[in-house]
Amino acid sequence: MRIVKIDAGRGLKQRLLALGLVPGADLYLLANKHGPVKLCFNSSRLALGRGVAAKILASRAEEEPCPEGCAEENCPHR
């Protein structure tokens, strides 16, 4: 998925930006069913509370790119 927009308050937005979650960045959801959302992103793994994740607007592309640093086996739907 590609981040389109971050709709959070200043403080949280700064934190997400500092982690590299900027509009245009590709990420891959590793877990999204319950509990915090887990992403594979920019060679690292991030856990975001569902409240936080809801503030990140991302679009799903036809071809899901497997972001750099995410193992192929993590991106089975590619």
Binding site: L16, L19, R45, L46, G49, G51
Partner: peptide, 11 residues
């Protein structure tokens, strides 16, 4: 107030 945002790296 809201509880702290859960944003964490899994190193």
């Amino acid at each position: 107030g809201e509880s702290a945002h859960f944003v964490m790296e899994l190193p």
